[in-house]
């Protein structure tokens, strides 16, 4: 199966790549357990930086769409089809919205929420 990306598209390359691989999983072009090309092979085929492919693979792995089995390579995850429909961005947005609504009900102001969010992020990252 061939995947196609447009380097002049406004959508980031890694995002196009993720979308195409998820589409391939959803339409059955690739099945759970199928091997994927190495990062180097795909980057050279596209003529793009291997870091871009690595980023796409790492996000797909995070979403359990693909899995890396050490030196044997990268494969489609057994639950890839179900996991493709999970939108982590939408989930994060929903979770934050619920929390913010709860804060507001308790009388916390917008600036207090922003400062609190920023402090929590800094504490987590430090």
């Amino acid at each position: 199966m061939e995947i196609i990306i447009d380097i002049e598209d406004t959508e980031p390359l890694f995002s196009q790549l993720i979308k195409q691989i998820k589409q391939a999983v959803q339409n059955g072009s690739v099945s759970p357990g199928d091997a994927l090309p190495s990062i180097r092979q795909m980057a050279n085929d596209f003529g793009m930086n291997s870091k871009t492919v690595a980023k796409a693979y790492s996000l797909l792995e995070r979403d359990s769409v693909i899995q890396t089995r050490g030196y044997r390579g990268t494969f489609i995850h057994p639950d890839a089809r179900n996991n493709c429909t999970v939108d982590l961005n939408a989930w994060v947005l929903q979770e934050l919205r619920n929390k913010i609504e709860a804060f507001k009900k308790a009388g916390v102001t917008d600036s207090e929420i922003r400062i609190g969010f920023s402090s929590a992020m800094n504490a987590l990252n430090s």
């Binding site: 061939e2 995947i3 990306i5 447009d6 598209d9 994927l36 092979q41 596209f46």
Partner: peptide, 11 residues
Amino acid sequence: NSVRRADLQPR
């Protein structure tokens, strides 16, 4: 051509 192709199978 800005369109690039790659095979989704390892060689």
